[in-house]
Nucleic acid binder design. Structure first.
Lengths: 356, 356
DNA sequence: ATGAAAGCGCTAACAG
DNA sequence: CTGTTAGCGCTTTCAT
């Protein structure tokens, strides 16, 4: 009797067949069905036939909830990103998802909108779902209650973008300080002396702080006077960054180059400088950070520190899965991966010339 | 006895406390613990105290796997996007995640990289996880085996970006045809006559086809000769689009305006035209589709059909949750939501002048 | 090679 | 207000 594509209803509700109905249909025990599912070789060839037929007929699909409950594992990883509006996190997530799927892991996603209190809630949710591990970017990796929870609960996790300084926590990132140092040194080599940093709120991103340190180091090492960084609040979607750049109208108030803590900021700055009647790179050179793909599509192309976002995600997932699966074996290895960055040279930066 | 922050180990393995240990610790039955968790008012004030104390002491966290197995629901929705490299999908996902969290739903994510066979696998995975519903963008909403599976299994789903023509399937999108029509009509009003469409592979996106129909309609209605659309393969990351635009060197071969089926393509085209020595908008006007935020940051700003991606995601989630929760009540309402689009006017388009 | 049975964590009758 | 119990779907001994 062939019942393929025929659903079973009870009181209007569709009944999703379980291993139990399959067993009944095939005339075997549920254990046998389970065996076929998990270790096909352990059942005889003709029972296998019967069971497969029943599975087909009923449209059976294993229920991971039951499996996970039993196994105490979920083959699911949680991901916590600050936002998906910033391409870097989307790219990273893309890398995570791809690598996860290759390994038959699923991905549960949460976003925090850069709110530190939401980090905790996000992780709580993931823990309630019993994810096997978490990939996340936090506000401050060196003082994070959220990470402490993860440690205490001994849930494997890997930080992305965060580069913990004082603590030894598994992470995948570029060397933010060194990358910023390289970018600023590049500007200095081109003759720039008045270089200012434009950043989001420092308290919302430890990476921005590390990049600022790289800026400072480059300036000091070349005997240049660091300028006060410009800190703009988030949700400066419109030209609110505008008000922070007003001073630039006065040439003497204006840096010759602006080092931005991320590309979104860099692009906003370019637009707002333009609105102020200033030209990039002629009046101000712009250096970004992240290396988002779109930076290369514009004119002038954006100079930026390129970090391999998709790779970061992929490596984080691989590291996490390794940790999860070794955890069974006992010994945990904490690995901090620093991936190489590149200073991408684009048209938004030009050598400094005094007679401009 | 206070045991907060003290983990319980058995053979090196951490034991995550269950409702059972909490009950033991508090000296009540597991039912009481469950009640406190789900309906705090139904337990006496002092038992509540004891139980809460036990929960605190043990660091208990409810296990959704058990709960879900029992309930037959997961309070989780699955999302299937073609890719996260395209900002529109990331934005949409952002909208979904935000709205989901507000309603205490979790999000499980999968990507297909525009491979139709991966759509099926993605949905299978989500179904195995017993998600309560699915939000997805498919290659072709009118002939999708994946959607048929969803229908047959009676899993609530909502399409995003897809705008089914022949079938009546729940969806949230703009009116692609009308939007394209509006964009092209705008170009025509500006005096353009040789308008060509630049698209990704049509077979990979029903939206692109609908937009092409809008293009055709606008051209025909204004008695203009439609040009053969240019179809570029995906993963034209570098300047492969280049080869498709070579003909543009010859002014007589060149349209005065290019209507692109998405913004990524539009930006790539702008770059490649530039590389060809052509100026935008002076030599060729460019109209995009999607209205990605970055389009407004560049110079010239990108003219584009703006669709409210984050809203699309949010509304899809809301619709989905409504469906999920009404499903209990029986009657299903299939709703197709068409959200308003806007032709965003930017500097990449200028009126056509013959003496250029 | 197969079956019987226990139990993962939880909720919902049901009984008191 | 609280306890007892069954069972959601599955895997895994332990027998046979």
């Amino acid at each position: 009797m062939r019942r393929h594509d025929v659903n079973v209803y009870i009181n209007h509700y569709i009944v999703r067949p379980s291993i139990k109905q399959v067993a009944l249909e095939a005339g075997v025990s549920i254990a046998t069905v389970s065996r076929l599912l998990n270790n096909p070789d352990s059942v005889s060839i003709d029972t296998a036939g019967k069971v497969n037929q029943a599975i087909e007929a009923l449209g059976f699909r294993p229920n991971f909830t039951g499996r996970n409950l039993r196994a105490g594992r979920s083959r699911t990883v949680g991901v916590v990103v600050p936002t998906l509006s910033n391409t870097v996190f989307a790219q990273c997530l893309q890398g995570v998802e791809l690598a996860a799927r290759q390994r038959d892991y699923s991905v549960m996603l949460t976003a925090t909108e850069y709110r530190q209190q939401d980090e905790a809630a996000a992780v709580e949710l993931l823990l309630a779902h019993r994810v096997d591990g978490v990939i996340l970017t936090v506000t401050n990796a060196d003082a994070s209650a959220t990470l402490d929870v993860l440690e205490r609960e001994q849930i494997p996790y890997v930080l992305v973008y965060n580069q913990p300084q004082e603590s030894t926590r598994p992470s995948v990132s570029v060397d933010n300080r060194a990358a910023a140092y390289d970018a600023v040194t590049y500007l200095i080599r081109l003759g720039h002396q008045r270089i200012q940093m434009l950043a989001g709120q420092f308290h919302a991103s430890d990476r921005a702080i590390q990049r600022y340190h790289g800026y400072l180091q480059a300036m000091q090492q070349h005997n240049l006077v660091p300028l006060e960084p410009i800190e703009v609040p988030r949700h400066t979607n419109t030209s609110l960054a505008f008000e922070y750049l007003q001073a630039f109208r006065n040439p003497s108030q204006r840096p010759s180059a602006l080092f931005c803590s991320n590309d979104l900021l860099a692009l906003s700055a370019m637009r707002d400088l333009r609105a102020l009647g200033l030209r990039v790179p002629d009046d101000v050179s712009i250096m970004g950070f992240d290396g988002i793909p779109l930076g290369e599509l514009m004119e002038p192309t954006l100079s930026s520190v390129e970090q391999p976002s998709e790779q970061i995600g992929e490596l984080a997932l691989r590291t996490l899965v390794t940790t999860i699966e070794e955890q069974q074996g006992g010994h945990l290895v904490v690995a901090s991966h620093i991936l190489p960055h590149t200073v991408r040279i684009g048209g938004s930066v030009k050598p400094f010339t005094s007679h401009r």
